[in-house]
Computed example of a mutant assay.
Amino acid sequence: MVDDGGIVLVGSGPVGPEEGEEGGAGGVKADFLQPIKGPNVDYRYVRIEENYSAGATIVKEGNHGKWLWVIADGTVKIIKETPKGAITLARLGEGCFIGTIRSFLYGAYERSATVIAEDNVQLCLLDAEALNHEYSLLSEDFKKILLSLDNRFRMININAIQAHIGEYSRELPQDKVVESQFHNNTEFYIIREGTADIIGKGLKGDVNLMTLGADDVFGKIPFMAFGHEPLYASVMTSSPFQADVLDSAALQKEYDNLSHTFRNFVFSTATNISMTTKLFYHLLGHT
């Protein structure tokens, strides 16, 4: 069953904080487009298995689709078309997901990248209804965290593409200030009012990674790390600005109680963000 197009969730399964936090400019390595691999496939949410031959287009940019897969065998390449030619955003191997949280929340949506099989590939089509049901049981704060992380991933992808075509603005915000109160290595926040810019610590200077708004989260996420704040980026806030501290212990417990498939899916977002951030720094010449 070929999907109509695809934006991808690039990533592996759970890794330790020491691994996940190497996404800053200092963590960029020349092999960041080596295939990413995740944990073994959990078959509890698998509906069917599908096979694709080398060179087959699994997902086509610009079309609509809702399928969500995990790769059981083989490698796929994620390609984005730009005015200056195609760019490879990632190469995914066994255990990685193809699709985002929108696949099981919003149904068919326009895909923003093409997925091509590099060799013979076996995919496991996941049960979107089961994932949607598990999502519905989460706390409102946890739901907002997942949506905010998906938003962060999409924004860093956009910036990487802008850097590729030479249209990324390197200027830092002039109307915001660095707030020392949000540079606590243990607290986790949700924005209630205003905006916050995440300023990465590039090898050749500061880099504006993205702008977060109401209901977005920032700080030390208890169950994942991807090389942004608090260790590898600072936070600049608007005026006025308000953010509340989230209960990290409760959120960690909620994460631990997720099914194996959903937990790997959530944690894959950390790899998505980390690897795309490395690509972004590379395209800006910070490697």
Score class of each variant (00 low, 15 high):
74 G>C: 12
74 G>I: 02
75 T>F: 08
76 V>W: 05
76 V>C: 11
77 K>W: 08
77 K>I: 15
77 K>R: 14
78 I>K: 03
78 I>A: 12
78 I>F: 02
79 I>L: 13
80 K>N: 10
80 K>M: 09
81 E>D: 13
81 E>M: 06
82 T>V: 10
82 T>E: 09
83 P>F: 01
83 P>T: 00
84 K>T: 01
85 G>W: 06
85 G>Q: 00
85 G>E: 04
87 I>L: 15
87 I>K: 09
87 I>G: 02
89 L>P: 00
89 L>F: 04
89 L>G: 01
89 L>V: 13
90 A>H: 10
90 A>R: 03
90 A>K: 06
91 R>V: 13
91 R>Q: 13
92 L>D: 09
92 L>M: 15
92 L>A: 13
92 L>Q: 14
93 G>P: 12
93 G>T: 10
94 E>L: 03
94 E>H: 08
95 G>I: 02
96 C>N: 11
96 C>K: 00
97 F>C: 06
97 F>K: 04
97 F>V: 13
97 F>I: 13
98 I>W: 07
99 G>R: 02
99 G>L: 02
100 T>I: 09
100 T>H: 04
100 T>N: 08
101 I>C: 05
102 R>T: 14
103 S>C: 15
103 S>H: 10
104 F>D: 04
104 F>R: 01
104 F>C: 08
105 L>A: 08
105 L>R: 10
106 Y>P: 00
106 Y>G: 10
108 A>W: 05
108 A>P: 13
109 Y>A: 15
111 R>Y: 12
111 R>M: 11
112 S>A: 11
113 A>K: 00
113 A>H: 08
113 A>M: 12
113 A>G: 11
113 A>F: 03
